[in-house]
Amino acid sequence: MTQTSPTNASRGAVDTLLRTIGWISTVCGWISALMILSSVLITCQMIFVRFVLRQSTIWQTEMVIYLMVGATMLGLPYVQKLRGHVNVDLLPMWLPRGPRTVLALLVLGLGIVVLSIMAWYGYENWHIAWERGWRSPSVWGPPLWLPYLLLPVGFGLFILQLLADLLALLTGRDTPFGLEDK
Rank of each mutant, 00 (worst) to 15 (best):
S116R: 13
V79G: 02
A164R: 08
S5D: 10
D89L: 11
V139E: 15
W23I: 15
R11H: 11
L170I: 14
T61E: 03
W120Q: 10
M93I: 04
V40L: 12
M68W: 14
V52K: 04
Q55A: 12
D165M: 14
H85T: 10
V64W: 06
M73G: 06
T101S: 08
Y78F: 13
M1H: 10
W59T: 04
P137G: 01
P99G: 12
V14G: 00
M1A: 12
M118P: 04
P147C: 05
Q80H: 11
S138K: 01
L146A: 10
D15Q: 08
L115R: 02
P92C: 11
E62A: 12
I128T: 15
F155G: 01
N87P: 02
L179E: 05
D89Q: 03
T72W: 10
P152N: 06
P143T: 07
S56T: 15
D89T: 07
L150T: 13
L110T: 12
G75N: 10
L157Q: 03
M73Q: 09
I58G: 00
F177K: 04
A9C: 01
D181L: 09
S32K: 03
W30H: 12
P152F: 08
W126G: 03
V113Q: 06
Q161W: 09
L17C: 13
A104C: 09
L108V: 13
L90H: 02
L150G: 07
W30P: 01
G156A: 11
R135W: 03
Y78T: 04
M73E: 08
T101H: 06
T20A: 13
V69Q: 05
L162R: 01
Y66H: 14
S10P: 00
V88Q: 01
T16Q: 06
V114L: 15
P147S: 08
V69R: 04
L110Y: 06
D165S: 14
M68L: 15
P137H: 04
L41K: 10
V102I: 14
D165Q: 15
E131W: 04
